[in-house]
Amino acid sequence: MVTPVLVEARGITKRFGPRTVLEDVDLDVHEGETVVIIGASGSGKTTFLRCLNRLETPETGQVRIADVTLGRRSDGRPADERELSQQRRLFGFVFQRFNLFPHLTAMQNVALGPRRVLGVRRAEAEARAVHELTRLGLAEHVGKRPGQLSGGQQQRVAIARALAMDPRVILFDEPTSALDPELVQEVLDAMRALAGEGMTMVVVTHEMRFARSVAHRAVFMADGRIVEQGVPNDLFGAPRDERLRRFLRHLEPHHDR
């Protein structure tokens, strides 16, 4: 991509106890780019996304987004918890299992962040929520609680919730893998539309057709490292690494859509 780099992760290493889950991972994401991350279960994809927005704290390495270094103030000193919360808002996060707040309606789920974290007035926060939900085709569901929505609808509410905070990047962690097959497409379509509007996105997914048609770049992770990356059609069509070849062989017959 010719646009400037927006997110720059350098030398990310993460350990859980004695286990090294991420080892020296670098990744640049350009403005408006959609990057897809693939890799076997346990290869560290979720942990990497969480290190990007500091839901997990890496042992070493740095994440920069725009002119902010996560965990550091502009004068270079360590950021406190409150400042880190502010920095974290630059990232939206969409979880595998939606994680909507069960006591709130769809509209309240989306409005809560703008209202309580951004300090927007209630009427304005709710208007923003309705706007985002409408944009995701959920206009008639604004008053429903998560329990009254299908998985696909819940995940679209979760995307609206992330969008309402006006993030610079959205991180998606296997957003369709907890969905019944017939509900996957509506979520992928929403993501495709977002990418089309120029949203910068990092997506962990095994939806290969989505990756081929939407992503500008695909990244393959194995054992806590980025092993290979490239334009999706090249990466999937002519994999060099043996682990990637094996991974694609297992994946393609079942999951391509």
């Binding site: 974290r88 808002r89 939206g92 962040g113 974290v117």
Partner: peptide, 21 residues
């Protein structure tokens, strides 16, 4: 679900906000 706390933090909520909201 304990993951709700992660969801709140991903929206920039502080620990007390996550608790009360």
């Amino acid at each position: 679900d304990p993951a709700l706390e992660r969801a709140a933090r991903s929206l920039g909520a502080s620990v007390p906000q996550t608790l009360t909201r």
